[in-house]
């Protein structure tokens, strides 16, 4: 009865510092993220939402507890293994500075697959063309990030995140730097990828407007989940 889980955590705990400066960012978080849904993680600053995302993405090691993504347990993986895992199974969209300034939009989109050494076979090319078309980036492929607007940069980042068909796409405040029109565009594109491509998207945000685009909402406070609900339609 449980749909496939894209990711899950059990007793996830993360603390920083020592003695006087000891900070408990996460306190024993249990979370299941179903596949094919758009989840928004919300909370005030200091609630631990970014830390939760870092641990889910394999960017940070938890102090205690377990993390499973796409059926694989992340604890015990060394840096190389985690890196390879990220390359194949995780996509990223950040608030700012998503792209390598020296590369063109097209080169930025191909980057993770190039790092993985994957062949640009017909399938992959087809996927590339499809994504670029949907995101309306065809005219911008040769441009450098400096020549793109904020909204266009985020779209390139989304394209990069989607190209390798990852198990899960993490978006950290993706609309933080954008005006309302571009924000709406980016959020609806993310939702589109969930609806049409069956992608799983997990978005960290503090804007309630943004959360409206999500399917599920998880609220964190002081390192604990205080609320889990389906978003109002």
């Amino acid at each position: 009865m449980t749909s496939l889980l894209a990711a899950s955590t059990r007793g996830l705990t993360k603390s920083y510092g020592r003695g006087d400066t000891l900070v408990h960012a996460l306190r024993g978080v249990d979370l299941d993220l179903p596949a094919g849904r758009f989840t928004a993680i919300m909370g005030p600053s200091g609630s631990g939402k970014s830390t939760l995302m870092h641990c889910l993405a394999g960017l940070d090691q938890p102090t205690a507890g377990s993390v499973t993504v796409a059926g694989q347990a992340l604890e015990g993986m060394d840096d190389d293994a985690l890196t390879r895992f990220r390359r194949d199974h995780v996509g990223f969209v950040f608030q700012a500075f998503n792209l390598l300034p020296a590369l063109s939009a097209e080169q930025n989109i191909w980057l993770p697959t190039e790092l993985a050494g994957r062949d640009r076979d017909a399938d992959l090319r087809g996927r590339f063309d499809g994504i670029v078309d949907t995101l309306d980036l065809t005219a911008r492929l040769g441009h450098r990030p400096a020549e793109l607007s904020g909204g266009q940069q985020q779209r390139v980042a989304i394209a990069r995140a989607l190209l390798s068909a990852p198990a899960i796409v993490f978006a950290d405040e993706p609309t933080g730097n954008l005006d309302s029109a571009s924000s709406a565009e980016v959020l609806s594109l993310l939702r589109q990828s969930v609806r049409e491509l069956g992608q799983t998207v997990v978005m960290v945000t503090h804007e309630t407007e943004a959360a409206r685009y999500a399917d599920d909402i998880v609220v964190l406070a002081d390192g604990r989940i205080t609320e889990r609900r389906e978003a109002a339609a």
Binding site: L59, T83, R87, A116
Partner: peptide, 14 residues
């Protein structure tokens, strides 16, 4: 930052 982004996106240290 560039190098960190590369690592994020899947480039190993090597």
């Amino acid at each position: 930052r560039d190098l960190a982004l590369l690592r994020c996106v899947g480039a190993t240290r090597q």
